[in-house]
Design a protein around this nucleic acid. Sequence first.
DNA 1: TCAAAAGTGTTAGCATTACACCCATGC
DNA 2: GCATGGGTGTAATGCTAACACTTTTGA
Lengths: 226, 226
Amino acid sequence: MSTLILPPQATQAGLAVDIAAFAMHGGQLQVLLVERGSLPHARTWALPGGFVHLGEELGEAALRELRVKTSVELEPRLLEQFYTFGAVERDPRGRVVSVAHMAVLPHGTVRVTGGGNALGAGWFPAHTPPPLAFDHQEILNHAIDRLQIRLEYALLALEFLPDTFTLPELQGVYEAVLNKRLDKRNFRKRLLSQGVLTTSGERRSGVGRPAQLYRKASRVRIPGPL
Amino acid sequence: MSTLILPPQATQAGLAVDIAAFAMHGGQLQVLLVERGSLPHARTWALPGGFVHLGEELGEAALRELRVKTSVELEPRLLEQFYTFGAVERDPRGRVVSVAHMAVLPHGTVRVTGGGNALGAGWFPAHTPPPLAFDHQEILNHAIDRLQIRLEYALLALEFLPDTFTLPELQGVYEAVLNKRLDKRNFRKRLLSQGVLTTSGERRSGVGRPAQLYRKASRVRIPGPL
DNA sequence: TCAAAAGTGTTAGCATTACACCCATGC
DNA sequence: GCATGGGTGTAATGCTAACACTTTTGA
């Protein structure tokens, strides 16, 4: 395929992707973890991830690893690279750089089972996860920071919810991601004044007074990789 | 060194860094480019960069490449990774991922000469560079976007200037980076009200009325990699 | 005295925050 | 009728943006 060759001093490094996949569940921000089935760090929880295949784009690899390692069914609503972790000693097997990705999965995607060489997969509170393998705690911290920034910026909160949702549900996403409480009136004012939500007429039944349902107005804003 | 080995499906990719190094010169935002001396893209301008060495951290590699390829003397005031470019076909020699970095060099660092296998090095207007090798135009675009974001955020503009500077000079940095003109009064109000500048008493001689000199107040804010 | 660049205040509009009570429904 | 959660408005404050003239110096 290539007639030119890489120069001899070119480091060949293992190229991996790891994914911090978030979803809302039980009113909490949850992150998807897998239990490693092989060394190193066997039987330790870790972010799903693995090595990029030949001829495979980074984003494709992230998507494949997410599917294989966790058997999640739905399409991620957002999948973007956010930082590359390349410390020399981060993997005891040798030089491995990990292009870390952040993903948002819509509500309802909670049936996950381990696949590949993962023993299992499950959702854990993103702000208080179990001990993680490699430098995955650091990766997770960065991912949460990035998620908080993107949340306001690109109406990312909607991606956590089904097509129709109530304003209190949406506020719950904000509160779970930002890890702080918001004022109901100001929240509604701000969101509705942006004009990106359209009322969906119906009402959902619950314990107290039923809430108005909304859906995203057709205007879809695709966030760039900044 | 490592008793464990990488699994067979692990893609070994060439691991490179590229650096978009910015400085102010002649009232313009300039980017540092090198003329490639070898294939592919020989005699084409490109961002300085190259392969990471074994046992070398990504940031170290970026610094080394910057020094070797361009012979710049001064320390970069900021050097941070911002995105990883890993498209399968971005390098005709094979799979090479580039961890792109952004650097800011202080004023006065304009003596650059080619080194390594670069034919030459020089400063070019960042908003209107010559045709670039590989996907370096795309990398540069991302770098400028990131630079604009970081500018306000972390008082990054100060890093372009010598220790003491005038407010019109600082405003010039903002205008060059953001590529638009700003109101003098609002600019001064905003900057001075942040309380991060302290007047340096003296005055610098020039054509019109001399300007007050300022320096950064000791409070140094180290920006994180977000 | 002229040219060139530095310096200076006010106003209007807009967004953000804080804050407390009534409403609709199911049980 | 009561418990539960949904829904509503206003006032104060702070930030942002627009805008024109005077001051200081060197030539």
